[in-house]
Simulated scan of single mutants.
Amino acid sequence: MSNSSSLFSVLTPLDLTYISASMDIYLYGYTLVMFIGLIGNICQIITFSQKFMQSLSTGILFLAMSISDTIYILQCLYVVIVYGFKISDRSNYGQTCQFRHFMNYLSTNFSAWMLTTITCDRWIRSRYPIKAKQICRPRIAVYAIIVALTFDFVLNFHLLTPMFGQIAPGVTTNCGANRSYPTYTYFYTYFWPIIVTLSVTIVPACIMIYFLISIAHTIKTRRNRVQPIGSTAANPHERRRAHYLHRQMLILMFATLILFFLTTIPVALFRLTFSIFNIQQSFSFSLLLASIFGLITTINYSLNFYLHSLTSNLFRKQFFHCFPCVITITSRNHNRNLETGNSMQRYVTRAPQGTITQLMQQQLYHNETDLNCTTMT
Protein backbone atom coordinates (compact mmCIF):
# COMPACT_ATOMS: atom_id res chain seq x y z
CA MET A 1 0.00 0.00 0.00
CA SER A 2 2.82 2.38 0.80
CA ASN A 3 4.27 1.92 -2.67
CA SER A 4 0.95 2.66 -4.35
CA SER A 5 0.29 5.70 -2.17
CA SER A 6 3.77 7.08 -2.88
CA LEU A 7 3.23 6.47 -6.58
CA PHE A 8 -0.03 8.44 -6.72
CA SER A 9 1.41 11.19 -4.53
CA VAL A 10 3.91 12.17 -7.24
CA LEU A 11 1.28 12.26 -10.00
CA THR A 12 0.40 15.73 -11.23
CA PRO A 13 -3.16 16.79 -12.14
CA LEU A 14 -2.19 16.45 -15.81
CA ASP A 15 -1.05 12.87 -15.20
CA LEU A 16 -4.35 12.07 -13.51
CA THR A 17 -6.19 13.55 -16.51
CA TYR A 18 -4.19 11.35 -18.89
CA ILE A 19 -4.91 8.25 -16.81
CA SER A 20 -8.61 9.06 -16.54
CA ALA A 21 -8.87 9.60 -20.31
CA SER A 22 -7.06 6.31 -20.92
CA MET A 23 -9.46 4.42 -18.67
CA ASP A 24 -12.45 5.93 -20.48
CA ILE A 25 -11.02 4.94 -23.85
CA TYR A 26 -10.47 1.38 -22.68
CA LEU A 27 -13.92 1.17 -21.09
CA TYR A 28 -16.13 2.84 -23.70
CA GLY A 29 -14.10 2.98 -26.90
CA TYR A 30 -12.71 -0.54 -26.79
CA THR A 31 -15.99 -2.07 -25.63
CA LEU A 32 -17.95 -0.49 -28.48
CA VAL A 33 -15.39 -1.32 -31.16
CA MET A 34 -14.95 -4.88 -29.89
CA PHE A 35 -18.71 -5.47 -29.83
CA ILE A 36 -19.10 -4.19 -33.39
CA GLY A 37 -16.02 -6.07 -34.54
CA LEU A 38 -16.98 -9.43 -33.04
CA ILE A 39 -20.41 -9.36 -34.67
CA GLY A 40 -18.94 -8.32 -38.01
CA ASN A 41 -16.13 -10.86 -37.99
CA ILE A 42 -18.45 -13.72 -37.04
CA CYS A 43 -20.73 -12.78 -39.96
CA GLN A 44 -17.70 -12.51 -42.22
CA ILE A 45 -16.40 -15.94 -41.19
CA ILE A 46 -19.83 -17.45 -41.89
CA THR A 47 -19.94 -15.77 -45.30
CA PHE A 48 -16.47 -16.86 -46.42
CA SER A 49 -17.09 -20.38 -45.09
CA GLN A 50 -19.68 -21.05 -47.77
CA LYS A 51 -18.94 -23.61 -50.46
CA PHE A 52 -18.86 -21.05 -53.27
CA MET A 53 -16.40 -18.80 -51.42
CA GLN A 54 -14.25 -21.82 -50.55
CA SER A 55 -13.91 -22.58 -54.25
CA LEU A 56 -12.06 -19.27 -54.72
CA SER A 57 -8.49 -18.83 -53.51
CA THR A 58 -9.24 -15.25 -52.48
CA GLY A 59 -12.21 -16.43 -50.40
CA ILE A 60 -9.99 -18.83 -48.44
CA LEU A 61 -7.45 -16.09 -47.79
CA PHE A 62 -10.19 -13.72 -46.61
CA LEU A 63 -11.49 -16.44 -44.28
CA ALA A 64 -8.04 -16.89 -42.71
CA MET A 65 -7.67 -13.14 -42.28
CA SER A 66 -11.12 -12.90 -40.66
CA ILE A 67 -10.20 -15.59 -38.11
CA SER A 68 -6.96 -13.76 -37.33
CA ASP A 69 -8.83 -10.47 -36.89
CA THR A 70 -11.23 -12.17 -34.49
CA ILE A 71 -8.33 -13.52 -32.41
CA TYR A 72 -6.86 -10.03 -32.17
CA ILE A 73 -10.16 -8.57 -30.96
CA LEU A 74 -10.60 -11.33 -28.37
CA GLN A 75 -7.16 -10.77 -26.88
CA CYS A 76 -8.01 -7.06 -26.50
CA LEU A 77 -10.58 -8.17 -23.91
CA TYR A 78 -7.77 -8.36 -21.35
CA VAL A 79 -6.95 -4.63 -21.41
CA VAL A 80 -10.66 -3.80 -21.25
CA ILE A 81 -11.04 -5.87 -18.07
CA VAL A 82 -7.85 -4.62 -16.40
CA TYR A 83 -7.87 -0.95 -17.46
CA GLY A 84 -11.51 -0.31 -18.34
CA PHE A 85 -13.35 -2.23 -15.61
CA LYS A 86 -10.33 -1.98 -13.25
CA ILE A 87 -10.37 -5.67 -12.32
CA SER A 88 -6.90 -6.73 -11.20
CA ASP A 89 -5.21 -9.74 -12.76
CA ARG A 90 -4.78 -12.54 -10.19
CA SER A 91 -3.50 -15.19 -12.60
CA ASN A 92 0.09 -16.25 -13.26
CA TYR A 93 0.83 -12.94 -14.91
CA GLY A 94 4.19 -13.93 -16.38
CA GLN A 95 2.71 -16.68 -18.54
CA THR A 96 -0.44 -14.70 -19.28
CA CYS A 97 1.66 -11.78 -20.48
CA GLN A 98 3.76 -13.99 -22.73
CA PHE A 99 0.76 -15.65 -24.33
CA ARG A 100 -1.17 -12.39 -24.74
CA HIS A 101 1.69 -10.55 -26.44
CA PHE A 102 2.52 -13.56 -28.60
CA MET A 103 -1.06 -13.83 -29.88
CA ASN A 104 -1.16 -10.06 -30.39
CA TYR A 105 1.93 -9.93 -32.58
CA LEU A 106 1.07 -13.21 -34.31
CA SER A 107 -2.41 -12.06 -35.35
CA THR A 108 -1.28 -8.62 -36.51
CA ASN A 109 1.56 -10.09 -38.60
CA PHE A 110 -0.63 -12.81 -40.02
CA SER A 111 -3.48 -10.44 -40.98
CA ALA A 112 -1.06 -8.06 -42.70
CA TRP A 113 0.56 -10.81 -44.74
CA MET A 114 -2.80 -12.37 -45.59
CA LEU A 115 -3.86 -9.04 -47.05
CA THR A 116 -0.57 -8.92 -48.97
CA THR A 117 -1.22 -12.44 -50.27
CA ILE A 118 -4.74 -11.43 -51.34
CA THR A 119 -3.30 -8.50 -53.28
CA CYS A 120 -0.75 -10.81 -54.88
CA ASP A 121 -3.54 -13.23 -55.81
CA ARG A 122 -5.50 -10.45 -57.53
CA TRP A 123 -2.32 -9.22 -59.24
CA ILE A 124 -1.63 -12.66 -60.72
CA ARG A 125 -5.21 -12.91 -61.96
CA SER A 126 -4.99 -9.49 -63.56
CA ARG A 127 -1.52 -9.82 -65.05
CA TYR A 128 -1.49 -13.52 -66.04
CA PRO A 129 -5.13 -14.64 -66.48
CA ILE A 130 -4.16 -17.88 -68.24
CA LYS A 131 -1.57 -18.99 -65.66
CA ALA A 132 -3.85 -17.89 -62.82
CA LYS A 133 -5.99 -21.02 -63.28
CA GLN A 134 -3.01 -23.11 -62.22
CA ILE A 135 -1.49 -20.77 -59.62
CA CYS A 136 -4.51 -19.19 -57.89
CA ARG A 137 -6.15 -22.37 -56.63
CA PRO A 138 -7.62 -23.13 -53.20
CA ARG A 139 -4.85 -25.62 -52.44
CA ILE A 140 -2.15 -23.03 -53.17
CA ALA A 141 -3.99 -20.58 -50.90
CA VAL A 142 -3.87 -23.13 -48.06
CA TYR A 143 -0.11 -23.55 -48.62
CA ALA A 144 0.33 -19.76 -48.48
CA ILE A 145 -1.57 -19.66 -45.17
CA ILE A 146 0.70 -22.36 -43.70
CA VAL A 147 3.87 -20.56 -44.84
CA ALA A 148 2.71 -17.21 -43.43
CA LEU A 149 1.67 -18.79 -40.14
CA THR A 150 5.01 -20.59 -39.80
CA PHE A 151 6.95 -17.40 -40.55
CA ASP A 152 4.99 -15.39 -37.98
CA PHE A 153 5.37 -18.12 -35.36
CA VAL A 154 9.16 -18.21 -35.76
CA LEU A 155 9.38 -14.40 -35.77
CA ASN A 156 7.48 -14.02 -32.49
CA PHE A 157 8.57 -17.18 -30.69
CA HIS A 158 10.95 -15.25 -28.40
CA LEU A 159 7.91 -13.78 -26.63
CA LEU A 160 7.17 -17.24 -25.18
CA THR A 161 10.63 -17.64 -23.65
CA PRO A 162 11.68 -16.62 -20.10
CA MET A 163 13.49 -13.62 -21.63
CA PHE A 164 10.10 -11.91 -21.95
CA GLY A 165 7.50 -11.46 -19.25
CA GLN A 166 6.88 -9.56 -16.06
CA ILE A 167 9.19 -6.56 -15.76
CA ALA A 168 9.06 -6.20 -11.96
CA PRO A 169 7.54 -8.03 -8.96
CA GLY A 170 4.02 -6.88 -8.23
CA VAL A 171 3.55 -5.10 -11.56
CA THR A 172 0.61 -6.72 -13.35
CA THR A 173 -0.35 -3.95 -15.75
CA ASN A 174 2.72 -3.97 -17.97
CA CYS A 175 5.26 -6.48 -19.26
CA GLY A 176 8.36 -6.50 -21.40
CA ALA A 177 11.92 -7.77 -21.53
CA ASN A 178 13.34 -9.50 -18.48
CA ARG A 179 16.17 -7.39 -17.05
CA SER A 180 18.06 -10.56 -16.18
CA TYR A 181 18.88 -10.87 -19.90
CA PRO A 182 20.65 -7.59 -20.83
CA THR A 183 21.32 -8.59 -24.44
CA TYR A 184 17.69 -9.44 -25.06
CA THR A 185 16.62 -6.28 -23.22
CA TYR A 186 18.73 -4.19 -25.57
CA PHE A 187 17.29 -6.06 -28.57
CA TYR A 188 13.70 -5.68 -27.38
CA THR A 189 14.12 -1.99 -26.56
CA TYR A 190 15.87 -0.74 -29.71
CA PHE A 191 15.44 -3.32 -32.48
CA TRP A 192 12.15 -5.09 -31.82
CA PRO A 193 9.92 -2.00 -32.42
CA ILE A 194 11.63 -1.45 -35.78
CA ILE A 195 11.22 -5.12 -36.74
CA VAL A 196 7.53 -5.05 -35.81
CA THR A 197 6.90 -1.87 -37.78
CA LEU A 198 8.66 -3.25 -40.83
CA SER A 199 7.03 -6.69 -40.73
CA VAL A 200 3.50 -5.54 -39.90
CA THR A 201 3.18 -2.27 -41.82
CA ILE A 202 6.04 -0.93 -43.93
CA VAL A 203 7.06 -4.01 -45.94
CA PRO A 204 3.49 -5.30 -46.55
CA ALA A 205 2.34 -1.78 -47.46
CA CYS A 206 5.16 -1.32 -50.00
CA ILE A 207 4.40 -4.70 -51.61
CA MET A 208 0.68 -3.96 -51.74
CA ILE A 209 1.23 -0.51 -53.25
CA TYR A 210 3.38 -2.07 -55.99
CA PHE A 211 0.69 -4.67 -56.75
CA LEU A 212 -2.02 -2.01 -56.76
CA ILE A 213 -0.13 0.15 -59.26
CA SER A 214 0.48 -2.88 -61.45
CA ILE A 215 -3.19 -3.93 -61.29
CA ALA A 216 -4.36 -0.43 -62.21
CA HIS A 217 -1.90 -0.29 -65.11
CA THR A 218 -3.03 -3.70 -66.37
CA ILE A 219 -6.72 -2.75 -66.23
CA LYS A 220 -6.06 0.51 -68.07
CA THR A 221 -4.05 -1.29 -70.76
CA ARG A 222 -6.76 -3.88 -71.31
CA ARG A 223 -9.43 -1.24 -71.73
CA ASN A 224 -7.45 0.36 -74.55
CA ARG A 225 -6.56 -2.95 -76.16
CA VAL A 226 -8.57 -4.13 -79.19
CA GLN A 227 -9.50 -7.79 -78.74
CA PRO A 228 -10.15 -10.16 -81.62
CA ILE A 229 -13.77 -10.98 -82.40
CA GLY A 230 -13.23 -14.69 -81.93
CA SER A 231 -11.92 -14.29 -78.39
CA THR A 232 -14.95 -12.28 -77.27
CA ALA A 233 -17.42 -14.57 -78.99
CA ALA A 234 -16.05 -17.75 -77.42
CA ASN A 235 -18.14 -18.68 -74.36
CA PRO A 236 -19.38 -15.15 -73.50
CA HIS A 237 -21.26 -16.35 -70.40
CA GLU A 238 -18.11 -17.78 -68.82
CA ARG A 239 -16.11 -14.66 -69.62
CA ARG A 240 -18.83 -12.45 -68.16
CA ARG A 241 -18.94 -14.52 -64.97
CA ALA A 242 -15.13 -14.49 -64.57
CA HIS A 243 -15.05 -10.73 -65.11
CA TYR A 244 -17.80 -10.24 -62.51
CA LEU A 245 -16.00 -12.36 -59.90
CA HIS A 246 -12.68 -10.62 -60.54
CA ARG A 247 -14.27 -7.18 -60.22
CA GLN A 248 -16.08 -8.09 -56.98
CA MET A 249 -12.92 -9.52 -55.41
CA LEU A 250 -11.03 -6.39 -56.40
CA ILE A 251 -13.68 -4.31 -54.64
CA LEU A 252 -13.30 -6.40 -51.47
CA MET A 253 -9.53 -6.04 -51.66
CA PHE A 254 -9.61 -2.26 -52.21
CA ALA A 255 -12.01 -1.72 -49.29
CA THR A 256 -9.77 -3.74 -46.95
CA LEU A 257 -6.62 -1.98 -48.17
CA ILE A 258 -8.08 1.49 -47.61
CA LEU A 259 -8.97 0.60 -44.03
CA PHE A 260 -5.52 -0.93 -43.50
CA PHE A 261 -3.68 2.15 -44.78
CA LEU A 262 -5.82 4.61 -42.80
CA THR A 263 -5.48 2.82 -39.46
CA THR A 264 -2.09 1.10 -39.36
CA ILE A 265 0.34 3.36 -41.22
CA PRO A 266 -0.15 6.50 -39.04
CA VAL A 267 0.17 4.42 -35.86
CA ALA A 268 3.27 2.65 -37.18
CA LEU A 269 4.94 5.93 -38.13
CA PHE A 270 4.29 7.42 -34.70
CA ARG A 271 5.66 4.38 -32.89
CA LEU A 272 8.67 4.18 -35.19
CA THR A 273 9.43 7.87 -34.57
CA PHE A 274 9.27 7.43 -30.78
CA SER A 275 11.51 4.37 -31.01
CA ILE A 276 14.17 5.78 -33.34
CA PHE A 277 14.54 9.13 -31.59
CA ASN A 278 14.14 7.53 -28.15
CA ILE A 279 11.56 10.09 -27.04
CA GLN A 280 10.88 9.73 -23.34
CA GLN A 281 7.35 10.11 -21.97
CA SER A 282 5.79 9.80 -18.58
CA PHE A 283 3.87 6.67 -17.70
CA SER A 284 0.52 8.47 -17.84
CA PHE A 285 1.17 9.93 -21.30
CA SER A 286 2.50 6.60 -22.57
CA LEU A 287 -0.68 4.94 -21.32
CA LEU A 288 -2.80 7.52 -23.14
CA LEU A 289 -0.88 7.02 -26.40
CA ALA A 290 -1.14 3.23 -26.05
CA SER A 291 -4.91 3.45 -25.58
CA ILE A 292 -5.39 5.74 -28.58
CA PHE A 293 -3.08 3.79 -30.89
CA GLY A 294 -4.57 0.51 -29.73
CA LEU A 295 -8.11 1.73 -30.40
CA ILE A 296 -7.20 2.87 -33.93
CA THR A 297 -5.52 -0.47 -34.61
CA THR A 298 -8.54 -2.38 -33.28
CA ILE A 299 -10.76 -0.48 -35.72
CA ASN A 300 -8.73 -1.99 -38.55
CA TYR A 301 -9.72 -5.48 -37.41
CA SER A 302 -13.37 -4.63 -36.72
CA LEU A 303 -14.90 -2.89 -39.75
CA ASN A 304 -13.99 -5.13 -42.69
CA PHE A 305 -17.37 -6.89 -42.73
CA TYR A 306 -19.30 -3.62 -42.89
CA LEU A 307 -17.08 -2.23 -45.66
CA HIS A 308 -17.45 -5.45 -47.65
CA SER A 309 -21.22 -5.39 -47.22
CA LEU A 310 -21.43 -1.79 -48.43
CA THR A 311 -19.12 -2.12 -51.42
CA SER A 312 -19.51 -5.64 -52.83
CA ASN A 313 -22.73 -6.98 -54.35
CA LEU A 314 -21.30 -10.52 -54.41
CA PHE A 315 -20.48 -10.41 -50.69
CA ARG A 316 -24.00 -9.24 -49.83
CA LYS A 317 -25.55 -12.05 -51.88
CA GLN A 318 -23.38 -14.68 -50.24
CA PHE A 319 -24.09 -13.24 -46.81
CA PHE A 320 -27.87 -13.36 -47.38
CA HIS A 321 -27.54 -16.97 -48.57
CA CYS A 322 -26.49 -17.84 -45.02
CA PHE A 323 -29.96 -16.98 -43.73
CA PRO A 324 -32.80 -18.97 -45.35
CA CYS A 325 -35.46 -16.71 -43.83
CA VAL A 326 -34.04 -13.69 -45.66
CA ILE A 327 -33.94 -15.66 -48.91
CA THR A 328 -37.54 -16.81 -48.40
CA ILE A 329 -38.77 -13.25 -47.84
CA THR A 330 -36.83 -12.02 -50.86
CA SER A 331 -38.17 -14.79 -53.10
CA ARG A 332 -41.72 -14.17 -51.89
CA ASN A 333 -41.45 -10.48 -52.71
CA HIS A 334 -40.00 -11.36 -56.10
CA ASN A 335 -42.82 -13.82 -56.84
CA ARG A 336 -45.40 -11.29 -55.66
CA ASN A 337 -43.97 -8.69 -58.01
CA LEU A 338 -44.07 -11.19 -60.87
CA GLU A 339 -47.69 -12.06 -60.14
CA THR A 340 -48.62 -8.39 -59.99
CA GLY A 341 -46.91 -7.76 -63.31
CA ASN A 342 -48.64 -10.74 -64.92
CA SER A 343 -52.05 -9.67 -63.66
CA MET A 344 -51.50 -6.16 -64.99
CA GLN A 345 -50.48 -7.58 -68.34
CA ARG A 346 -53.59 -9.78 -68.45
CA TYR A 347 -55.74 -6.78 -67.60
CA VAL A 348 -54.25 -4.71 -70.43
CA THR A 349 -54.39 -7.42 -73.06
CA ARG A 350 -57.70 -9.12 -72.19
CA ALA A 351 -60.57 -9.28 -74.77
CA PRO A 352 -63.38 -6.68 -74.77
CA GLN A 353 -66.31 -7.45 -72.49
CA GLY A 354 -69.82 -8.15 -73.85
CA THR A 355 -72.25 -10.85 -74.85
CA ILE A 356 -71.55 -13.52 -77.44
CA THR A 357 -73.94 -11.86 -79.94
CA GLN A 358 -72.11 -8.53 -79.64
CA LEU A 359 -68.73 -10.19 -80.15
CA MET A 360 -70.00 -12.03 -83.26
CA GLN A 361 -71.40 -8.82 -84.70
CA GLN A 362 -68.08 -7.04 -84.13
CA GLN A 363 -66.22 -9.89 -85.83
CA LEU A 364 -68.61 -9.86 -88.85
CA TYR A 365 -68.20 -6.11 -89.12
CA HIS A 366 -64.38 -6.39 -89.17
CA ASN A 367 -64.53 -9.18 -91.80
CA GLU A 368 -66.90 -7.12 -93.95
CA THR A 369 -64.61 -4.11 -93.73
CA ASP A 370 -61.56 -6.18 -94.71
CA LEU A 371 -63.50 -7.65 -97.68
CA ASN A 372 -64.55 -4.21 -98.91
CA CYS A 373 -60.97 -2.94 -98.65
CA THR A 374 -59.77 -5.94 -100.67
CA THR A 375 -62.39 -5.35 -103.39
CA MET A 376 -61.45 -1.68 -103.68
CA THR A 377 -57.80 -2.51 -104.18
Rank of each mutant, 00 (worst) to 15 (best):
T161H: 10
T161A: 13
T161I: 06
P162E: 02
P162N: 10
P162S: 08
M163Q: 09
M163G: 09
M163D: 01
M163K: 15
F164R: 04
F164Y: 11
F164W: 06
G165P: 04
Q166R: 15
Q166K: 14
Q166V: 02
I167N: 02
A168R: 12
P169G: 00
P169N: 04
G170Q: 11
V171A: 08
V171Q: 14
T172G: 10
T173E: 13
T173N: 14
T173D: 13
T173K: 14
N174I: 00
N174G: 02
G176R: 05
G176K: 03
G176Q: 02
G176L: 01
G176V: 00
A177P: 01
A177N: 02
A177T: 00
S180H: 08
S180Q: 14
S180G: 15
Y181K: 08
Y181F: 08
Y181A: 02
Y184N: 01
Y184D: 00
Y184T: 01
Y184E: 00
T185Q: 15
T185D: 09
F187W: 08
Y188K: 06
Y188Q: 03
T189H: 06
F191K: 07
W192Y: 12
I194T: 04
I194F: 04
I195W: 09
V196N: 02
T197N: 13
L198G: 07
S199F: 09
V200K: 06
V200Q: 12
V200C: 10
T201Q: 03
T201A: 09
I202Y: 08
I202V: 11
I202L: 14
V203F: 12
V203P: 00
P204L: 06
P204H: 07
M208A: 00
M208D: 01
I209Y: 11
Y210C: 11
Y210Q: 13
Y210S: 11
Y210K: 14
L212S: 04
L212D: 04
L212E: 07
I213N: 15
I213P: 08
I213M: 13
S214D: 14
S214K: 07
I215F: 03
T218I: 09
T218E: 13
I219V: 10
I219L: 11
I219T: 02
K220H: 05
T221F: 08
T221C: 08
T221M: 10
R222P: 01
R222Y: 11
R222W: 08
R222H: 12
R222V: 01
R223Q: 05
R223M: 07
N224L: 14
N224A: 10
N224P: 04
N224E: 10
R225M: 12
R225Y: 13
R225P: 01
V226I: 11
V226M: 12
V226L: 13
Q227W: 14
Q227I: 15
Q227G: 09
I229R: 13
I229E: 10
I229A: 12
I229C: 08
G230Q: 15
G230P: 05
T232G: 05
T232F: 06
T232M: 12
A233D: 12
A234W: 11
A234K: 09
N235W: 05
P236R: 13
P236N: 12
H237N: 09
E238G: 06
E238H: 03
R239T: 03
R240L: 04
R240A: 05
R240V: 02
R240S: 08
R241Y: 06
